[in-house]
Design a protein around this nucleic acid. Structure first.
Lengths: 339, 339
DNA sequence: TTGTAGGCGTTATCAT
DNA sequence: ATGATAACGCCTACAA
């Protein structure tokens, strides 16, 4: 069933059918009625491929994420926001997940190019030279989310992971903690891994607290990994940190769970600070003290930014946006009484 | 930049270029080299739209979800599994969210048709007559996930929400509870809403426990809604249930949080049972006793089923799959000592 | 107001 | 082994 069939059934030319469908020109009442009748009866839907091919516009946005477990990340909220903005502007979403594999990512960028998506929302994590070679001549508008690139100037929407992590660490210091364990993420995740680690380090430096490498552990976003990292930090009963900064709430939850299993109460025996402010954070026992990041705003801004980038009529474009964050004081951190 | 340009640059015909790209026929060593050089140099990527138009096949699967908040649902894991299976088979994903609006859903089905997706994964929730009218002549293969339809025979992959909820309720009864509060979901969500409620009711009936309407409340998936529902159930200090069955873990978490705020310990003062076994469940305080559903398997099965449905060579098709579930005894339910 | 015909970028079918 | 050419289904001048 194509436009030609519809035209035949209605006894008009394909142009007339097209005009009825797209309201692109005057059509006589009589012809319009006949066409609409056929349309209704047959349930005909125009073939987007043909239309998009001829108009060179797909009304599709590629969304590239790179996570191992969607439910373990705070992406869901951003994606939710994105679907809203794009839907409101009649765009569709093509979703792809690279799972942290750089090669996979490049292949996805190729697919997006072949599919002729109109724009790309790129939840980056680890922007390598490989990417640079591929993307420097990439014609499709891209907005990076969650990370900026040192190799290439590209519009982005990010959290201030560095300062937020510094703020979190300084908060612990202000609360009297000098021996602060760290549960980080691999460096190949530049934002959540590298930047937050840097923030932790700088806070120490600026407060003249020497960094203790044995206090720095690493997880992989999962609750379990937070649990295991905490195990290491608590291994020696005579030499334990008084506080722990876990760079994601889920790892913080794992850490607290581990502390409990080892007979330690949070925050009485040890303080734990998270990062993200996921939904459960406020309802955990104890309620998690954490950094609240505005993931919803990030999704919304990124989608809006991309849309404006794609709009050739509009030359004034904001191309960088850093989302706000705030520290949520709840129940998992307590001041260290200086004895 | 199109295939013609490449042909010109390489000094061959477009047919030859096509043959090189698709490895579809013999090409002389000489010509192949020249074409490949141009391909590499220009970074040319064939236009999928043109190819798909001509082959009438898009290698794209539409995934339709209907949630208000992606992060509050257990969908993420299924989607993760789906992306894996489809990626392994070279399919792309077009993601759309109806947010429980039936009209929106119909519009999405139309979009999928226009976009000529090869198949659809449909996370249904509330299949209405409207849908029936639209889908009975819908030519694209669809697999429903999480719900089956009473109106139309359609392949599906589901959890056994009814029996699982019955099992959960009966477990509470076996533990000596006779007064069991209920935090459900709206009936328009047939699986998570209606079916789980039915299971709760049947368990009562079969154990000759009268149903108390004032014990039945309703949430909306969110933690907050679980908290509010629990508030109602605990309103009267002289008339409280001894256990509560919350039909999602997140609502259970909200409920426990509320109990804590009202000075009640779980499970000592009141037992709480969840449903889903989300990641945090095992690490909550207390660890949640809940129904574990195999969301990953559901995603995998659904994708595989759809793929086999789309394969016209293969006539033997399984079209229904009910995923396994299990009861996870953890720490939020305790036996009621019969005094 | 309506219809004809060319073109969007491919692949596939023919000849050569 | 290679190249011309007709589809695929639509939109859009242009002509009538």
């Amino acid at each position: 069933m194509n436009i030609k069939d519809v035209a035949n059934c209605a006894g008009v030319s394909i142009s007339t059918v097209s005009r009825v469908i797209n309201n692109t020109a005057k059509v006589s009442e009589d012809a319009r009625k006949r066409v609409e009748a056929v349309l209704k009866e047959t349930g005909y839907r125009p073939n987007s491929l043909a239309r998009e091919l001829q108009q060179n516009k797909t009304y599709t946005i590629g969304v590239l994420i790179c996570v191992t477990e969607l439910s373990m990340s705070s992406l869901s909220q951003s994606i939710n926001a994105i679907t809203d903005v794009l839907k409101a502007n009649n765009y569709n979403i093509m979703l792809a997940n690279s799972r942290y594999h750089a090669d996979e990512e490049l292949s996805i960028f190729n697919t997006f190019k072949e599919k002729r998506v109109d724009g790309i929302l790129y939840f980056a994590a680890g922007f390598a030279k490989k990417h640079y070679a591929m993307l420097k001549n990439y014609k499709i508008p891209i907005v990076m989310i969650g990370q900026k690139s040192n190799y290439i100037d590209m519009p982005y929407v990010i959290h201030d992971d560095f300062y937020a992590a510094k703020t979190a660490t300084e908060y612990l210091i202000q609360m009297g903690h000098q021996d602060i364990g760290f549960i980080g993420l691999p460096d190949y995740d530049e934002a959540a891994g590298l930047e937050r680690k840097k923030g932790y380090k700088l806070a120490h430096e600026m407060n003249n607290i020497p960094l203790n490498p044995s206090r720095m552990t690493e997880g992989d976003f999962s609750i379990e990994s937070g649990y295991e990292a905490m195990k290491i930090l608590l291994k020696n009963p005579d030499d334990r940190p008084t506080a722990v900064f876990a760079t994601t709430d889920f790892m913080a939850i794992g850490a607290i769970s581990c502390a409990n299993d080892m007979g330690l109460k949070v925050p009485d025996d040890i303080s734990v600070m998270g990062f993200d402010d996921v939904h459960v954070a406020a309802f955990y026992q104890p309620p998690l003290t954490t950094i609240h990041t505005d993931t919803h705003a990030v999704g919304t801004k990124a989608a809006e930014l991309l849309l404006s980038l794609m709009d050739k009529e509009n030359p004034n474009k904001i191309t960088k946006y850093v989302a706000s964050y705030s520290l949520m004081e709840r129940g998992s951190v307590r001041p260290l009484s200086s004895i």
